[in-house]
Write a protein that binds this DNA or RNA. Structure first.
Lengths: 237, 237
DNA sequence: CAAATAGTGTCTTTGAGACAATATATC
DNA sequence: GATATATTGTCTCAAAGACACTATTTG
């Protein structure tokens, strides 16, 4: 039935291609995802992931598109951007006969000031527990958030902290607290320390601090080895 | 600089969206990937992954597109199709200013007869070791194959056999041999049996066989529990 | 010294690797 | 019985959980 198939591929109508961002941050002791309230139809006034349309004249790659859309929509490019999944279908977006969404996960520091982008009424940090429960989200963004949460938790479970997740320097107990907040459950102190040290991803600094009326903790940074974790495999976005 | 950004998103030119298939099979004791020789430019006469252009008038989803393209290009829809990665960029394909490729991994039974699709000179099963070494492949398909191989090996390592990987019934030693062929290295007999049985993915059948001049092995099938492994998470292609 | 958190010691459990021993077919 | 593979037994090791203990700071 597809007999005219020998023509050049470019003649076929192409779908609308968007890049959506699952931006995370640790705030008030729990993992939160950034939602934006849509200013226009479809799903007007509903909350969803910030995102934008791929611009083939501006974007060199999907990774670059994700950065640009971060800047345009929330005023900043999230760090540690990594592709999570690509979804597409005929009935995802009424504005186009076929719509594709390439979803990226990223981090921002909790204290960074976000700015409202175009076509957005408001931005809001939502705890991922709530976001998973709420069925009020636009499109299939609830599922996409769920995938992104699974993804970042898998990384943290293996002590692969996405770039931008950690402060420049930190103590092991601070690293553990952060991990617990991302994973959503407590971790054993001894086991965590053992695993982190065995992995040899830390460099001990010759300072000390973290006051309080108690013994201070040693300060560490990520070493170079742990930064090289991005292979070509993660780079081809 | 992007001041006219308030217009409807659909006015932007969209990229060429393709779906490429990394189809695997076990043959002659090793994991092989199916390559096709291109009949037309670009990369005329070079080998690459079989693939095709997304047809928004025919395909309900990317998963459906992968099935259709399987049928069109190699005469059969691979089983256990799962999305691996999406790549895109300005200079990937000279036929379009921007080209996207959504890569799916799938399996076919080794004895199935393939048929040559359009725009393909020939099909060839290439051991993944060779495919990884050859830098002769079209586009960035060498990298895509590498990703797909990592993906299927991760699954098999965790005893998650993609649909179509296993015959309907099999013995534990046969399952181990298959796993070793996919992983590319031998496994410990006792450990493998322990892990498989502990995972409770098998149902023992009341037959027996696998002749030869030796003790016969028990016959198993995958149970229903192990089939339910496809959650909504893997379904949204 | 009291309080509070950092860091260590160590017992136990679990899962995996190694390898020996036993079981059951065919010839 | 000889042979070949299936299946089990068991020793060892490595990683993780549990929990008690020690260390070091401030007030």
């Amino acid at each position: 039935m597809t007999n005219k198939d020998n023509s050049e591929p470019t003649i076929y109508p192409m779908p609308l291609v968007r890049v959506d961002l699952a931006v995370f941050s640790i705030q008030e002791g729990c993992l939160k995802v950034l939602l934006s309230q849509r200013k226009e139809a479809p799903f007007k006034n509903k909350w969803g992931l910030p995102g934008g349309v791929l611009r083939i004249d501006l974007d060199e790659s999907f990774h670059a598109a994700a950065k640009r859309i971060g800047v345009e929509r929330i005023g900043i490019a999230p760090t540690g951007l990594q592709q999570v999944v690509t979804v597409g279908g005929a009935k995802r977006d009424p504005r186009a006969p076929w719509a594709v969404s390439v979803v990226f996960r990223g981090m921002v520091k909790p204290d960074l000031q976000l700015s409202l982008g175009k076509r957005i009424n408001a931005l809001e940090w939502r705890p991922v527990t709530d976001a998973g429960a709420s069925s009020e989200l636009a499109f299939d963004h609830r599922d996409l958030i769920e995938l992104a949460v699974i993804d970042i938790r898998n990384k943290v479970r293996e002590l692969h902290f996405p770039e931008g997740t950690l402060p420049d320097t930190f103590t092991i107990p601070e690293l553990q607290a952060l991990s617990e907040e991302i994973l959503g459950h407590p971790l054993d102190k001894v086991t965590f320390r053992r695993r982190v040290l065995a992995k040899e991803i830390l460099v001990e600094l010759s300072e000390e601090l973290r006051g309080g009326a108690h013994r201070p903790a040693k300060i560490y940074t990520l070493n170079s080895k742990s930064m090289k974790a991005k292979t070509k495999l993660n780079a081809n976005n």
